[in-house]
Design a binder for these strands. Sequence first.
RNA 1: GCCAGGGUAGCUCAGUGGUAGAGCAGAGGACUCAUAAGCCUUUGGUCGCCGGUUCAAUCCCGGCCCCUGGCACCA
Length: 511
Amino acid sequence: MKSFYITTAIDYVNGSPHLGHAYEKVLTDVVARFRRQMGDKVHFLTGTDEHGQKVQASARKLGIDPQTFADNVSAEFRAMLTRLNISNDDFIRTTEPRHKQVVRAILQQLFDKGEIYRAEYRGFYSTRQEQFLQEKDRNPDGTWPEIFGEVTEIVEPNYFFKLRSYQDWLIQYLNDHPDFIFPRYRQKQVLEFLKEPLNDLCISRPKERLEWGISLPFDEDYVTYVWFDALLNYYSAVADKGLWPADFNVIGKDILVPPHAVYWPIMLHAAGLPPPKGLLVHGWWMQRGAKMSKSTGNALNPLDLVDEFGADAFRYFLIREMNVGQDSDFTREQFLVRYNSELANNLGNLVNRTLNMTTRFAGGVVPAADAAASDETEQELRGLWEKTRAELIPLNEEFQFHTALERAMAFVTATNAYIEKRAPWKLGKSAEAKDQALLRTSLATMAEALRLAVASIQHVVPGAAEKINAVLGYTPGAVWRDELAWGNRLDGKKVAEALVLFPRPAPEKKA
RNA sequence: GCCAGGGUAGCUCAGUGGUAGAGCAGAGGACUCAUAAGCCUUUGGUCGCCGGUUCAAUCCCGGCCCCUGGCACCA
């Protein structure tokens, strides 16, 4: 069995979960569930990033210790995972001993090899903000903005990682692995970035300035600063499991360059470890009306839609609407359009009418299709399924989930059209043997088509898929590829009478 | 400024060197198993602008305009 290790970025606990966090989890979950269906032994990791200045400061402001603060926010992120039906296998926190231990071991190893050295860091420091300032922070006239208070130039010894000496290696690596980053054009951005010489990376902070972190094993007066702490989680979580390298680190486009595309592969390489096999880089959700909503006091928190419409509907929208890698707009209006037309009207209603007709015209038991009573009407639907089925796996493998869902929905539409053509409600009124045979065939066909449609989207809407299978009296087999074969698997199954999966919301007033 | 992506029906997008496509929205119709859902038909586009190559360009080339994103630390 092929193993497949995938991660999300770990979330910084200085803020609460929002749509971006949710999307990344759902996207990764869809990939993970798909790989499981394909038979891979999947390990899915997510977690929280808990050290650093901001956490320290936020905790102090609340008068609690940083660990308690981190515990609280980390719990919020874990609650979101449950709420979204995320199937992660592990959850790592950077404050855990298993993580700290690995970080320290790697830092020590690199220090011993001479990859980390001590040098003086010179810069302008704001005591009030407790941070070094950049040239870009200056006012146009060269002074520093008020908020920084007194700014002094200070010289501070720190530890640096020899990033620059691996620049050529990285460029070569990217040229040799053109598929390292998805979407591909992002890799060009990285190579563009690498045209400028890299600076070595400052990886430490003295404890007088930052104590909430992992101590350097070779100098306990310092903690390591962000990169070795946060990025290494992908490795530390599986260091003892033999799962490295990861198949994919899933990240947002904002943390591609330089952290994940430059620092991360170089850090690993310097430590004698291979880079992840790929980086899956997604875009951002935009909310154009955000300002307006705020001013009217009606700011929409997209996560509220989970409570209102359920995790499946929310997951469906995110995956259906977003072309992985690009940006999309998130509006309630668009959500409702997708929800109503695709989930409620098209799929949800198909479920309900199938159950109802099976109950009314066949005593609630899916009849066997009558081979004699079957013609090009059935062939047409089956033909479309075969076409859809052939596209399904490649589309999902290439992260074209939005297209895969579109195809699945087109099949659902075709199934609805098939039902109209056969009109079982008319056949049900006829006592003729020929019509009765056709009735059995049409009921069997619609049920089977529904089962297949559900199988094709179950990684996106796992909860709904389970419910639909349940009302069809069906338990899917272990091998997903086999489930995609048209096989009249529902023969003789006793179905439920009704199921309104995606209730239509009360119509909303138009603005 | 540099780099990348994009500008196609009201909206979201697909697409190919040879009479422009889908979904949603809009209009009309027949039906009734169903979540006033579903089905059928249908209105609608100088395919950003200007040149060039070609028998033929939305698709190839050149120039221009506009939008979005990246360019050292917010998914």
